[in-house]
Design a protein around this nucleic acid. Structure first.
Lengths: 207, 207
DNA sequence: CGGCAGTTTGAAAGATTTCAACATTTGTGG
DNA sequence: CCACAAATGTTGAAATCTTTCAAACTGCCG
C-alpha cells in the first residue's frame, strides 16, 4: 500500500511490525509537551524508551488520554493533531521522528489496521464496561504492554492519568483499586506497583 | 494507495467520495440480517436506499450498534466481521456489494481515513458526553445525514436502536427526548418525527 | 377487536461523580 | 539532611445521573 507523496499525513500507527527508516532523535523531560505542529504532518513518532501520553483537550475543560505509548510504540503525528491533541512525557522519554516512506505500502497498511483495531476496541470499552471492568482490562493491558505478561507491573502513570484514559474520575479509579485489593485480585505494595494475584479473574472481569 | 491482492480485507469505508465499480445487488427486508461471512473478505457494501444498522453482540448479552448506514454510505465487510458483527435492515433496504479494486489507492486512502475519523469521534462521544449531550449530538447528526440539514427529521430507527447506538438504556433515551421537548429544544409530533426548534442550542449541547 | 411491539412514565436501586478532608509521597531550598 | 510546600493518593458522605423494574399507554396489523 502506498502513501502518496503529496498526502503523507495519512500515516497512522501504533506498534507496527514494519521497520522505519532512522529518524530525528528527541527527548522530553517528565511533563514536557510535544505539539504535532512542532513538526509538520507526514511524520511518525517512535518511542525509544520511557512513557508518553496522547492528550486531547475537551470543551468542558477535561482532557482525554487516548493512548499511552511505550518503548517500541509508534503513532502518526497527524492523528494526534487531528483532534487538537498533544504528546506529553509521563516519564523522561526518548523518541525518534520519522518521515513516512511514500513507497512502503506494507507500512501504511499496517499502520491503518493497527489504529482501526485500537480505536474499535476503545469504543467497545467505553460503551459497555463499568469502572471495575475498565480497570481490570487496563491492568491486563499494562501487564502485557510493559511487563511482558508478568504478574508484577510498575505503572509509570498517575491515578489521574489512568482516570483520563478510562474516562472515570480519579477517585473512582482509586476506589476500584482498593476494592480489587479487598477482593484479593491484586496486591498494591506501593501505589504504582500492581501485583496480579488472579489473572484469570481479572481477564474475565475485563472481558 | 494499493490494496494488496492477497490481503484485500483491509478495505474499510463509510461515505467515501471515490466511486466503486458496479457490483452485486442485494435487498433486505425489514429486520433481515446480512452476515459478512455470506461474502468473503475484500468486499465493500454500498447502501442504495433504506437504513441499515451495524450490530456487534457483547458477552453480557447486550448489543452495540456501531453505525447506522444510509443511502450513499459504504462500509468494508471485513471491519463488520472483525468484532463478530452483522448488518441488519432497519427499513427495507437495497445495497450493492463490491470487490475492492486492488489498483485504486485513492479509494483505500479515503476508506481508511473516513473510518479513523468516525471511530475517533465515537471515542470522544462515549468518553465524555452524558445522555443529554449524546442525544443532542445524535439528532444533529441525523438531521445532517438523512435530512440534508433540514429541521425536520424522520428517524427510521426505534428508541432501542438509538439506545444501543449511544450506549444508553432506551428509557434514558426516551426521558431525554421528553426533557428536550419540555425545554422547547425540539418538538415530537410523532415519536419518530423530530422537529428541531433551536438548532444552535442542540449543537452547543452536543458539542 | 385484540394482540403485540414499541413508547412513555414512575419509583427505587445502583453506579459514578463531586466535594471535602486527610494521608502520603515527591521535590526543593535552606 | 531536614523542613516545608506542592502534588498525588485515599477515604467518606452527599449529590447526581443512569439503569432497572414495573406499569401503563399508543398505534399498527392481522
Amino acid at each position: 500500500m502506498l502513501i502518496r507523496q503529496h498526502d503523507p499525513e495519512l500515516l497512522n500507527d501504533l506498534r507496527s511490525s514494519a521497520p522505519l527508516a532512522t529518524g530525528i532523535a528527541k527527548r522530553l523531560r517528565r511533563g514536557e509537551v510535544l505539539r504535532p505542529q512542532d513538526r509538520g504532518a507526514g511524520w511518525a513518532l517512535q518511542v525509544e524508551h520511557g512513557c508518553l501520553r496522547v492528550c486531547h483537550p475537551h470543551s468542558d475543560g477535561r482532557r482525554q488520554i487516548t493512548e499511552f505509548l511505550f518503548a517500541g510504540d509508534r503513532i502518526g503525528l497527524a492523528e494526534v493533531r487531528s483532534h487538537n491533541g498533544s504528546i506529553e512525557a509521563v516519564t523522561p522519554a526518548a523518541m525518534t521522528l520519522h518521515r513516512a516512506d511514500p513507497a512502503d505500502e506494507e507500512q501504511a497498511t499496517d499502520f491503518y489496521n493497527v489504529r482501526l483495531g485500537v480505536l474499535q476496541a476503545k469504543v467497545f470499552m467505553l460503551g459497555h464496561k463499568n469502572a471495575r471492568e475498565k480497570l481490570a482490562a487496563f491492568i491486563i493491558e499494562m501487564s502485557e504492554r510493559i511487563a511482558a505478561g508478568s504478574n508484577e507491573v510498575v505503572l509509570p502513570m498517575s491515578r489521574y492519568d489512568i482516570a483520563d484514559y478510562l474516562c472515570l474520575s480519579p477517585e473512582t479509579v482509586c476506589r476500584n483499586f482498593t476494592q480489587m485489593v479487598a477482593d484479593g485480585l491484586v496486591a498494591l505494595p506501593e501505589s504504582h506497583v500492581v501485583q496480579i494475584l488472579h489473572r484469570a479473574s481479572l481477564e474475565f472481569i475485563g472481558r
